[in-house]
């Protein structure tokens, strides 16, 4: 497997990507990491570009990560959250997004509770769209930063045993990670109570177990997922205490683990539920590294999606879609006027 250039307008899902494109994005993350290690952590490459974080769900880590990433590249970053937006006044997603684009935005980063919302926007908008988590579908940048973190420690993906423990069925992080890891040749095992395991586990190419000790013993890397009560996880088990007793990753459980096991968590952690504090802060944990590399990963994505416009075909393409093509051309002229 060799890296191949990523030349898409949008980053919507891991499923779309070839293994080569994933490796390309991991290599790019590596290059941007160097910028974050400098004394002056800023480069001018996206000067004059505008990145809008359009978040219809609460988020601290991902939004901050994209915001820092954009700012380190000198882009202007604007945050719009659903609670403070015109959505409250009844505006549709499409209208909100088209208004954002009309303000000469180069990249829109979207988080939305509906699966597929970023894909819909990508088709509607001429600017780049990044999926920052959509419903129970995908969270591609999280998978990329997780893969980068794994590669930093394990070097190769082929033959690596990675288990994911928790609410797999409702988790977009799990879905993106399973797909990405399988594409790069890692073995994936998912683990959780049967009420939390997806029906399509086999088609994703993952092994399934309900025994967390088995998963721990088998693993080179173990990802624990947050129990997402806001997505209805509370209906899948009797109580958080029972889940913690049966599936929580504790130091005692890790006695059967490999010596070089890597413990990961996409955050935010429910300490004492899916993971005990001594494991989260313990020697196997790379949780804060994941956060650190997330910024570099997102810098790479914003950099690529802001630069794609020069290669775009001219806007006057179809006769059938005359009005919308004309509109787009108008928008693009407006953007060009801003750029020059």
């Amino acid at each position: 497997m060799k890296p191949e250039p990523f030349q898409r307008k949008d980053l919507l899902s891991i499923r779309d990507l070839s293994p080569g494109e994933i490796l390309f994005l991991l290599d790019l993350t590596d290059s941007f990491r160097e910028v974050n290690e400098r004394e002056i952590k800023k480069v001018p490459s996206l000067r004059g570009k505008t990145v809008v974080n359009l978040f219809f769900e609460p988020s601290t880590r991902t939004r901050t990560s994209f915001e820092i990433a954009g700012k380190r590249l000198s882009a202007d970053v604007i945050n719009i959250t659903a609670s403070a937006s015109a959505t409250k006044k009844g505006e549709t997603l499409r209208d909100t997004a088209r208004n954002v684009e009309a303000m000469a935005t180069d990249v829109v980063v979207v988080r939305h509770p509906a699966s597929g919302a970023p894909t819909y926007l990508a088709a509607e908008l001429g600017c780049g769209v990044v999926n920052a988590g959509d419903g129970m579908h995908e969270h591609p940048t999280q998978a990329l930063l997780d893969l980068y973190t794994i590669r930093e420690h394990k070097k190769e993906f082929a033959g690596l045993n990675v288990s994911i423990v928790g609410d797999i069925a409702r988790s977009r992080v799990a879905r993106s990670n399973i797909v990405a890891l399988r594409k790069l040749g890692a073995n994936v095992m998912i683990c959780g109570p049967s009420t939390m395991l997806p029906a399509e586990a086999e088609s994703l190419g993952a092994e399934v177990t309900t025994n967390v000790d088995e998963a721990i013993e088998w693993s080179d890397v173990l990802m624990a997922l947050r129990i997402q009560l806001e997505r209805g996880a509370g209906t899948a088990f009797p109580s958080a205490r029972e889940y913690a007793a049966t599936y929580g990753i504790t130091r005692k459980r890790l006695q059967g683990a490999k010596r070089d096991l890597l413990i990961m968590h996409p955050g935010p952690i429910n300490r004492g539920v899916e993971m005990s504090p001594d494991v989260a802060d313990g020697p196997f944990s790379v949780i804060l590294e994941q956060v650190e590399y997330g910024v570099a990963c997102r810098m790479g994505i914003l950099y690529l999606l802001s630069g794609h416009r020069g290669e775009e075909s001219p806007p006057d393409v179809g006769g059938a879609e005359e009005p919308s093509a004309g509109e787009k051309a108008g928008e693009r002229r407006a953007k060009d006027a801003v750029a020059h």
Binding site: S31, E34, S306, A339
Partner: peptide
């Protein structure tokens, strides 16, 4: 020195084609 991030021709298609390397 990798000067890719300081170039003024990102819009001319430099983004995806140039392989960014590290400054050391």
């Amino acid at each position: 020195l990798d000067v890719t991030l300081y170039r003024d021709d990102l819009d001319r298609g430099g983004g995806a084609r140039v392989r960014l390397q590290k400054t050391a």
